[in-house]
């Protein structure tokens, strides 16, 4: 029992050692997140006025949007209270930024594409950063799904007659299934040999 804890310790130590860059990035995330959270709260308080301003500016926004804003911000706050401070703020910030960026869009399609982009970005982050190989695979699945949203959105708006985007999404689904199966088999085989799924330990091909 003690040994396994001891084995964690060096990593934590290194965590602190190269924390310089880390701290900066954390701080920047905080700044971004709090800023977007502030925007979200502004949206919450302004409510109807924001819609009027947008309409004044020549754009149209429907009542449903405002209801959507409200629901989103409430949900963000709820998740904030659930998920601990930093993650909650990040989530709220992302949602708020997402609303602000997409709510006034004329094209509904752009909303979907933006959501795809958000999920894709989250997936990229997870894939780059994950310590666990399986979590990395999950992030890849996330990215593939984000791409699928785009395909289906395009099929709906650009090619409703021949919904070829949906066809492509089906092929993507197939490939993703194959990828998941083989990827997991590789991870399991690695686990059998190395008895860990920690990406840092997979250093057989050092050079």
């Amino acid at each position: 029992m003690k040994d396994s804890k001891a084995s964690c310790r060096p990593e934590e130590a290194r965590d602190e050692a190269d924390g310089g860059l880390n701290m900066i990035s954390r701080a920047s995330i905080h700044v971004v997140a709090y800023a977007t959270a502030a925007v979200a709260i502004t949206v919450l308080f302004l409510g109807g006025q924001l819609g009027q301003w947008i309409e004044l500016a020549g754009l149209s926004v429907s009542r449903a949007d405002q209801i959507g804003f409200l629901a989103l911000v409430v949900m963000g706050l709820v998740s904030c209270s659930f998920g601990g401070s930093r993650l909650g703020v990040m989530i709220t910030g992302t949602i708020a930024a997402f609303i602000v960026l997409t709510a006034h869009q004329e094209l509904a399609m752009v909303r979907y594409l933006s959501l795809g982009a958000v999920l894709f970005a989250i997936g990229i982050y997870g894939m780059t950063v994950s310590r666990n190989a399986i979590r990395m695979l999950m992030s890849i699945e996330l990215m593939i799904n984000a791409a699928n949203i785009n395909f289906v959105a395009f099929a709906h708006w650009v090619d409703p007659l021949h919904i070829r985007g949906q066809l492509f999404a089906i092929f993507v689904l197939t490939v993703a299934a194959a990828e998941a199966v083989v990827g997991l088999a590789i991870v399991l085989a690695l686990y059998r040999n190395m008895s860990t799924v920690n990406m840092e330990k997979f250093n057989l091909l050092k050079w």
Binding site: A64, G68, I122, L142
Partner: peptide
Amino acid sequence: EQGFFYVLAAIAIPLAYGVV
């Protein structure tokens, strides 16, 4: 449709964060 979209997005984004 728009409202549903935002509700779904508001569920999807925290969950995706949770995954990572």
